[in-house]
Design a binder for these strands. Structure first.
Lengths: 346, 346
DNA sequence: GTGAAAGCGCTAACAA
DNA sequence: TTGTTAGCGCTTTCAC
C-alpha cells in the first residue's frame, strides 16, 4: 500500500481502487479480489462487509489492470463494413446489434475496426499483436477473402459468420444460415400457390453463396418436376441489373414468379414489372432475400427470406465462449434455417 | 528483467514484449519505449537498430499494459441501437462506419455497447467506472434522454451527435446537422419547380428535432408568401401513419407536393398516392429525409434530404480529440448542412 | 542519449 | 478463510 490516504467517492481524484475498498472494509486487497472473482472463498460476513464497501465507493475493477493480469480483454473484434449505397443489403445493422447484445450477456464488448483501405488484414494484425481483443467475428467470408485462413494460421481465436466455402481444409468454427433452404422455401411457396414457371435471378457464378441459394431454387423446381431451362439469370447485385435481367426473362421465358438472391435484385424486378404495367403479387410474384427495410416499407411489402441474425449472433457468441474457455471447447458448427417473411408480392 | 530467455517470433509462447526487443537490439527497455513514443530522443543509429528489432519480432506494444500505465484506453464507447423494423431509418449503419473510420485515423477504436433493457445509463456507468473507454459518442440525444446530463455531471468526456435541445444549461460539445435547413432546401426545391401547395408531414410536437425540421418547411413557405394552414400533419414515424396523413391532406388540402420528416413517412405518402393512382413525381412531388436505402432503390427513387454523416463523424472525432488532449481543448460546436439527393419523386 | 528504478491496479500462487 | 508476495508489460521520473 503506497497510497498515503484512501480516496472516498466524494473526494475522488480518480475512480476508487481495490485498495480503497480493502481499507474501508478492513481487509486485504486480495480478499476484495476474491469477493469479486471467488465469492465462495469468503466467509459470509466478510463477503457482506466487502460488498458493502464496494457499493459505498461505487467500485468497479479497472479494466486495463485486470486485462494485463489475466491476459484477456473481454473484447470481441469485428471488421465493420457498411451497406453499399444503392443496394437494399442491410443485414449488418441487425447483426451487429444482435452481436452486441449476445456478447453483453456473455460478458464481452464488441470492438469495431475498419478495413484499412486495401489491406483488410492489417486491422486484424494490429489488434491481435497488441492483444487488444480476445477473438474475432469474421463476417465477410463469402468474398473468398483470406482472413479466415490467415487467422487460422496464426492460431487466433475466431468464429466465422459463413461457411468456409472455398477452403475445404478449414477447421475453424462457423455459424451460417442455410441459403439453399431459404431459396427452396421461397420457391416452394410460389409452387404451392400454383406457379409453374418460377424464375431465378442470382449473382455471378463466382459467388459460392449465390450458387448455394440458387441450388435451393433449382432443387425445388426439379423436385416438382418443372423445367428450369431459360428461367435463370446471373447478374451483378444492383437494382439496374435485376431490372434488366427481369425484362429479358419476362420477354423470353414468361415466368409468373421470381425468386431473387437479394432484395436489391428483387427491387429491380419490381422496377421491370412497373414499366410493363404488371402488378407485383397479382400478375407476377416476387420474392427477395434478406428482409431488408426496403422489403418492409415499400407499398404492399416485398415477400422476402429472412435470416435469423439474432440467433446467428447467439450461436457465434456461444462458439466464441467455448473457444475462449480453458481448455478450449469448440462447439459444433451450426447451420440455421431462415424464414419467409410473407408480404404483398407473393 | 525476470524472464530467463527472450522469445523470438518463431518460438513465441506469446507476443513479443518490450524486453524481447530490447535484448535483440542490445538496449534497455526504456530505450525501446522511447523509440516508440519519443523517437527524437534517440540517436539515429540507435533508433534504427531498435526499429529493426521491432520489425524483426513483429512487435506491437501490449494494449493492456500501455492502458494501465497511461490511464487511457484509446477506445470510444457508443451505445448502438438498431434501426427499428418496419421503418426506413438507417442512418446508424452509415454513421457507425464513418465513426469507425474517423476514429481509426485519430488512433481510436470504437467499442459498442447495448442499452441494458430499460436502464440506458447502466452501460455508460459500467464502462466509465471501469475506465474501459476514454470517451463516449452519444447519438440519441433527441429522445430527451438524460444521458448527456448524466455524463456531464460525472465529468465524463463525450461528444453528442445532436444539439442539447432540451437542456439549455448544457455545455458539452456537440455536432449536429441542420434539419431546418434540410427541410427548407427540400421545400424551396419544390417551390422553384412551381409548386405552391406544399404539405408537411412530420413527427409529434414533443419531438424537438421534428419541430426544427418543420420550421424549415414553414419558413420557406412563409418567405415565399404562401399559406401553410391545413397543410401540415404531425404523426408517428410509421409508414401507416404517413399514408393516413397523406390521404387526409390529399382530400382536404389538395397539396401538389409533400415534404416529410423521414423517408418512412415519405414511403407512406407514396403508398397513399399509389392507392389513388397518382404518380409520384409527375402528379405529386414527394421528398423524404435521411436518404435511406429505401429512397435509393425504389423504382424511380425517392428524393431525400441527406445528412453528411461522414463529415459528422469526422467533426465528432475532432471534438473528441480536443477533449482528450492535455490540456483539454474543447472546439466549437458544429452545425453541418445537409444536401438534397434528387431522384424521381421531385 | 541511455539506463536504473518505480509503480499503474489487478490477480495467481503460496503462506499463515 | 485471510494475508503476503510477486509480477503482468508498459511508461515516467530521475540519474548517469
Amino acid at each position: 500500500m503506497t497510497r498515503p490516504e484512501p480516496r472516498s467517492a466524494a473526494y475522488a481524484a480518480g475512480p476508487p481502487t481495490l485498495a480503497d475498498v480493502a481499507e474501508l472494509a478492513h481487509v486485504s486487497r486480495q480478499t476484495v479480489s476474491n469477493a469479486l472473482n471467488n465469492p465462495d472463498l469468503l466467509r459470509p460476513d466478510t463477503l457482506e462487509r466487502v460488498q458493502a464497501a464496494i457499493a459505498a465507493l461505487g467500485y468497479t475493477p479497472n479494466r486495463a489492470a485486470r486485462n494485463l493480469r489475466t491476459r484477456a480483454s473481454h473484447l470481441i473484434g469485428m471488421r465493420f463494413t457498411p451497406a453499399q449505397e444503392g443496394t437494399a443489403n442491410a443485414t449488418m445493422d441487425r447483426f451487429v446489434h444482435s452481436l452486441v447484445e449476445a456478447s453483453r450477456e456473455a460478458g464481452y464488448h464488441v470492438l469495431l475496426f475498419a478495413g484499412h483501405g486495401g489491406d483488410a488484414l492489417e486491422g486484424y494484425d494490429d489488434l491481435l499483436r497488441s492483444t487488444a481483443v480476445d477473438a474475432f467475428v469474421v463476417t465477410d467470408t463469402y468474398l473468398g477473402n483470406p482472413q479466415a485462413t490467415w487467422l487460422e494460421e496464426r492460431g487466433a481465436p475466431f468464429v466465422a459468420f459463413g461457411r468456409p466455402w472455398d477452403q475445404p481444409e478449414a477447421t475453424h468454427p462457423w455459424v451460417d444460415v442455410d441459403g439453399a433452404a431459404g431459396a427452396r422455401m421461397a420457391t416452394e411457396h410460389l409452387l404451392a400457390a400454383g406457379h409453374e414457371r418460377v424464375a431465378w435471378i442470382g449473382w455471378r457464378k463466382d459467388s459460392t453463396i449465390g450458387e448455394d441459394r440458387r441450388s435451393g431454387w433449382s432443387g425445388a423446381m426439379r423436385d416438382a418436376g418443372l423445367p428450369t431451362t431459360g428461367l435463370a439469370s446471373r447478374v451483378e447485385d444492383t437494382v439496374a441489373s435485376g431490372a434488366q435481367a427481369a425484362a429479358v426473362l419476362l420477354d423470353e421465358a414468361r415466368p409468373s414468379g421470381f425468386v431473387c438472391a437479394s432484395d436489391t435484385l428483387a427491387m429491380g424486378v419490381l422496377h421491370a414489372l412497373g414499366e410493363r404495367g404488371l402488378a407485383p403479387g397479382r400478375d407476377v410474384a416476387v420474392v427477395g432475400f434478406d428482409d431488408s427495410q426496403v422489403a418492409q416499407v415499400i407499398p404492399g411489402g416485398l415477400t422476402s427470406v429472412r435470416q435469423p441474425l439474432e440467433q446467428v449472433a447467439v450461436e457465434i457468441v456461444t462458439a466464441l465462449s467455448g473457444l475462449l474457455s480453458h481448455p478450449p471447447a469448440p462447439g459444433p458448427n451450426t447451420l440455421l434455417a431462415p424464414t419467409l417473411a410473407l408480404r404483398g408480392t407473393a
